[in-house]
Each structure stands twice: as structure tokens, then as C-alpha cells.
């Protein structure tokens, strides 16, 4: 749509600007202030400059949390994106089953995040959980509170359970938007099922897939409540991801300044990734 140039449109945006500035800009400025000082109590503080940043960037705990986070986020993408596309292709296209499957598939998205943790805790425990008991009776040693591999895979399974539906719904609506004429043309040409997917469906899904990848990457990058409830970050620190590491530092240890420096590094990573994706999306829609 060709838009009219009108700078008075700023007045429409002003309420949003004020509210978001109140809840984003003021806190962000405060984080910057924290990060360059050593704050002992509200009245005793020293300017330390870049010290916390140097320390945080070289901090091995942070680096390993970042490593675990990246491995986790990429595993999430590697499983959820293909699985989401596959399930979207399986969804019914007409009839009463459409509404029913949509509601069932969307349900995990509406579960409060800590309850997701609770559900999986109850489901996976070795003594009372269906999954845990089943695996153990099959002779597989499984205890997510003890074994770090088991814990990691349980958290991953939980995330797949929780969020794959988002990819499914996005792809499903992308597929719905493909005109029937495309499929008819393919049928006349005698195209195989794979060819239809490769040359008709996949290209038309590119837009929603970019958004799905962006959202899944970002949300898995700040995952907090689910592993917090399920494993508490353990055993050891095998399922401690960035947000939890940060929250522990800020709330439990009340190490304000280090947490602030860490927050800013975290925020810069997010900012760079969002910018890349935003540029890709806006360019894709422009073409």
C-alpha cells in the first residue's frame, strides 16, 4: 500500500512510545548504570568502568551457559521446524476435524510456562510419572534428576511438546494460503508428491518459516520457567541456560553489577540476531 507522508502520525504512536519507554528505556538505562559501578548498597557505590564486562566476557560459567544455550536453541530448531512442517502437511484441510485438530494442537501453547514444567515433572518422574516408570520398566535407566543427559533430553522433549504447535500453526496457515490452481497445474504436469512439496509448497512457506525460525530461536534463547520448574537447572548445571544463569545472579545472589554487565551482553546478542531477521523479513516482503 502506498502510504501518505504525515509526521502528525507521531501523535498516534505517542501513547505506545510513552508506555514502552517507561517499561523498557528507563530500566535499560538503569542496567547500563549498574554495569559500570560496584554497588555495595544504595549509598555506597564506586565507578569501576569496564571491569565487569571484562570479567563477564572471560567468565567460564557464562561461556558454558552460552554454549549450552546455543546447542539447545539449535537442537530446538532442528527438531521443531521439520516436525512442524510435516505435521502441518498432515493436518486435515476441510470438515469438522479442522477445528478440533486446531484446538487440540494449540492447547500446549496456552499452558502457563511453570505448569508446563509441572506437567513434565509429573510425567517424567521415575516414581509416579508415566514416562519415567515406563522407561525404567523397559530396563532403560532413566532419572532426570540424576543423569545430566536424561535431564537435557527431558527439557528438549518438553520444549518440543510445548512449542512445535506454533510452527505447525504457522505452516498450516501458510499452506492454506496457496491457491488451488497451483496444485491443479502440478497434477496436469504429473508432478510427484515430492516435487509438489519441493517446488510449490516449500517456496510459498519461506515467509512464515522465517518468522517461525525467528520466534522459536528467540523464545528458546530466553527459556526460563520450564527448566526452572522441571530440573532447577540441574543436575549440576547441565540444564542451566542463559536466562536462568542471569536470574540466579540477579535474584538469588543479588550480584547486581555483574548481572547488569551480563544482561547487556545478552541484550546485544538478541539485538543483532533480531536485526538480521528483521532485515530479511522486510526485504522478503518488499520483493
Amino acid at each position: 500500500m502506498n502510504k501518505v507522508e504525515n509526521n502528525r502520525a507521531w501523535f498516534f504512536v505517542l501513547p505506545v512510545l510513552v508506555l514502552v519507554a517507561f517499561s523498557a528505556v528507563i530500566p535499560l538505562m538503569t542496567v547500563v548504570n549498574y554495569s559500570i559501578q560496584d554497588i555495595l548498597d544504595p549509598h555506597t557505590r564506586f565507578f569501576v568502568g569496564d571491569e565487569w564486562f571484562r570479567e563477564m566476557l572471560r567468565d567460564s560459567q557464562l561461556q558454558s551457559a552460552l554454549g549450552r544455550q546455543l546447542i539447545f536453541s539449535f537442537s530446538v530448531l532442528a527438531i521443531q521446524i521439520p516436525l512442524g512442517i510435516a505435521i502441518a502437511l498432515c493436518m486435515p484441510t476441510r470438515g469438522i476435524w479442522v477445528a478440533i485438530t486446531l484446538v487440540l494442537v494449540a492447547l500446549p501453547l496456552l499452558v502457563p510456562w511453570n505448569v508446563v514444567g509441572t506437567i513434565w515433572q509429573l510425567f517424567a518422574r521415575g516414581d509416579i510419572g508415566l514416562l519415567g516408570v515406563t522407561l525404567n520398566s523397559l530396563g532403560i535407566e532413566y532419572n532426570y534428576t540424576r543423569g545430566s543427559t536424561a535431564a537435557w533430553f527431558t527439557v528438549l522433549a518438553m520444549d518440543v511438546w510445548h512449542w512445535t504447535s506454533l510452527v505447525v500453526l504457522l505452516c498450516y496457515s501458510g499452506l492454506r494460503a496457496i491457491p488451488d490452481a497451483y496444485y491443479q497445474a502440478a497434477r496436469i504436469d504429473g508432478a510427484s508428491r515430492i516435487a509438489v512439496f519441493r517446488y510449490i509448497q516449500l517456496p510459498r512457506l519461506a515467509g512464515v518459516l522465517t518468522i517461525a525460525v525467528l520466534l522459536r530461536f528467540m523464545d528458546s534463547f530466553m527459556i526460563y520457567a520450564e527448566p526452572f520448574v522441571l530440573t532447577g537447572g540441574g543436575p549440576g548445571s547441565s540444564t542451566t541456560f542463559l536466562s536462568q544463569h542471569l536470574a540466579t545472579m540477579a535474584i538469588a545472589q543479588f550480584d547486581v553489577s555483574r548481572a547488569a554487565a551480563f544482561s547487556l551482553i545478552y541484550f546485544l546478542i538478541i539485538l543483532a540476531i533480531s536485526w538480521v531477521f528483521y532485515t530479511i523479513i522486510t526485504r522478503a516482503t518488499k520483493d
Binding site: I26, M29, T30, V32, N33, Y34, I36, Q37, I39, P42, R45, F47, G49
Partner: peptide
Amino acid sequence: MDWMVWTLPSALFFA
């Protein structure tokens, strides 16, 4: 404003 623990360098930066 006191709780925001301003320092001169950060104030200059944001300015």
C-alpha cells in the same frame, strides 16, 4: 532518580 544510580560517563553516553 536516585535509584537509577547515575554516573557522569553513562549520563554523557545517553545524552
